[in-house]
Structures are given as C-alpha cells and as structure tokens.
Simulated scan of single mutants.
Amino acid sequence: MKKVIKKSYKFAIKTAFYITLVISVLIAAVLLVSNVFHVGIVLGFSAFCYITSFLIIQYRVERFIYRRVKKIYDDLTLLESASLRRQPITTDMATLTQEIDKFAKDKKLEIETLKVREEYRKEFIGNVSHELKTPLFTVQGYVLTLLDGAMNNEKLREQYLERANKGVERLIYIVQDLDMITKLEVGDLSLNIETFDIVELVASVFDLLEMKSAKKKITLTFDMFYADPIMVKADKERIRQVLTNLVVNSIKYGRIKGTTEISIENLIKNKVIVRVTDNGEGIAKANIPRLFERFYRIDKSGSRKEGGSGLGLAIVKHIIEAHDEKIYIESELSVGSEFSFTLEKAK
C-alpha cells in the first residue's frame, strides 16, 4: 500500500527545499566571487540548511495548526484538549473535518427534531385544550342556566343535572386516559403478567360491546370456530383494554351492517398474532404514521361526533410496547382496516 505523506510534511519539504535552493545559490555565488568555491562546502551547507529548515518549519507549522485546531475543538466542545496532545497536529485536517461534519449533522438533526417536537407540542396542547374545553363549557352552561332560575323547574333541573353529569363523566374519562398514558410512557404502570385464554377474552369483549355494535348493526365475530383455548402470557386486563379500544374504534368508524372480525394465528413458535379487521371507512396512507399519537384525529374539522378521548390508539400502542410486543396496521380507504398485535404464547 502506498504510504501517504502528511500534508504538513509535504509543506515543510517543499518550503525547506526552496529556502535551501535560494540560500545555496547565494552562498555559491559568494564563494565564486571570493574565488573559494568548493562543491563539498556547498553540498554540506545545503544539507545542513535543508534539515534545519525542515525541522524548524515542521515544528512551527505543527504549533501554529495545533493552537488553531485546539481552539476549534474547544469552541465546539467536540473533544477534550488532552486527546489532541496525544498525537501531533498537522495540516492533515481529515479528523477535524470529520468531527466538524459529524457535529454539524448532529446539530442539524437536533434542530429538526426540536422543530418537530415543538410542532407536536403546539398541536398536542391545542388538542388537550379542545378536548377539555368542550365538556367544561357544557357543564358550565347547564350549571349557570340552573343558577339563573332553571333549578326551580323540577323537570328541567333533573334534565340539566343529568347532562352536566355526562360532561363531568367525559372529563373524568379524558383525565383517566391521560393519567394512564402518562404512567405507561414513564414506566410507572406495572404489568400483572398471567396465563389466560385469549379466545375467551375476545368473547367477553364481544359480549361487552354487543349493544354498542347493535346500534349500527355491526356483527362482531371470530374468523373461525376456536374449539380449543389459546393460552397466552400477558396482563389480562391491559390486553382486554387493547381489544376493547380496537373493537370500539372499528364500531365507531365501521359502516352500517358491517363486520368486525377477530382472528388469532400462530406467528412463530412462541408467538401468536391477534388481528382485528373491519370493513369500515378505512384510513388514508398519509394519516397512518400519526395514528397512534395522542389526540390525533383524521377528521380535521374538529368534529367530535364519535366521542372518545382521542387517546385510545395511543394507549393501545403503549400497552403493547410495554409487553415488548409489536402492533401493526393495514388500511385502505373505503375498504377497511386491520389492526394486529403479537403476544407471547404460554408454554
């Protein structure tokens, strides 16, 4: 392999050569004029001059570059100055260039990440404000109406109190979901891992949501008859919440007389995959990457006709990830959606 000469050495070699050449020519000229010219003297002086010039120039260049490179490193806080003293600093700037490029790329990525987070923060605060504001104003409106004299009307008083209570219940629901997702994110919510039959759990979720699905004439069904139990290891109540949230979502955005189907399949030796499939509205590809964000809604009109806290899918994602499992989504507009997640099989 061809040996690469450091650029500072090249500079010192060339500069020393030019200085030696000039001085040697001058010395030779002086000796010629003085009639004492001798080739050995000129060559000896040239060699001495060249070596001396090379050493001085190399030393000065390294010191000159060291001071400036060290200042750059100190300013950028890329490396400790001690690491520079362990090796000579030369005009070969490859290492410094790489460090500065890396620093610049990291800072650019950091700035872009901060911009994304800032945008997300603004959107999140706006969504939280909207979600809380609606039931708060509803409750306040009914209370103020009662205080203004409506409480004297017994029928109206009961009706308004019931509506105000629904607003309070919605507030409690949102706060509870926020509390849960916060605990999931910081790891404060411990999982109670147990062995249970996932088929039986799905059936119980179907029973729980039977009336809700009946309002839209949506059929809740398995993809096949499961004669034998399928035992898995997970937090049963958290997985119940995952299934409930996914099925409720499929009912909300499902078509009238539609179907929500759940299948349980062997994925690998120790894993099963649970699929929740519907033939509802479907989701545009542009919306899928943000679907699990808190309060993210596909409907940008601000309508809350379908209710909910807007945290359901975010909670689903965090619960599945807390189990060290994966969740997937496939969807097509006007065709339907499929949410699937993995679980560990019990031995």
Rank of each mutant, 00 (worst) to 15 (best):
I329H: 09
K155M: 14
T20G: 12
E119I: 09
Y59G: 05
D106L: 00
T182P: 09
F225V: 08
L243F: 03
E62F: 07
F54G: 05
A29G: 08
K271H: 14
M231G: 02
K133P: 01
R157M: 15
L144I: 04
F222L: 06
I65Y: 12
P88A: 03
L243Y: 04
N245T: 01
I262T: 04
S301Y: 11
Y9W: 13
L171D: 05
V205M: 01
K71Y: 12
V175Y: 14
F17V: 07
K271V: 10
G282D: 05
F339Y: 03
S309N: 06
L21N: 08
K10L: 14
R63M: 15
R238I: 13
V39Q: 15
S309H: 04
K10I: 04
N245W: 02
T195K: 09
V42I: 09
I283F: 10
I230N: 01
E306W: 07
M180P: 02
R68A: 07
D235K: 00
Y226K: 02
E325A: 08
L178W: 01
K252F: 13
V335D: 14
L132I: 08
G141M: 11
R294Y: 11
I89G: 07
S331H: 02
D228K: 14
E338S: 11
K347A: 15
R290I: 05
I51S: 14
A346N: 11
V116H: 06
D177H: 08
V61I: 13
K6T: 07
M93C: 04
L178K: 00
I100V: 08
L243K: 02
L243S: 04
E185V: 05
P229N: 02
Q98T: 06
I298E: 05
K166E: 12
D299Y: 12
I262H: 04
S34M: 12
L21W: 09
D92H: 12
L201V: 00
K133H: 10
S34I: 01
A227S: 09
S213Q: 03
Q87L: 14
A16K: 00
L132P: 01
I172T: 12
D223Q: 01
V186N: 12
A82V: 03
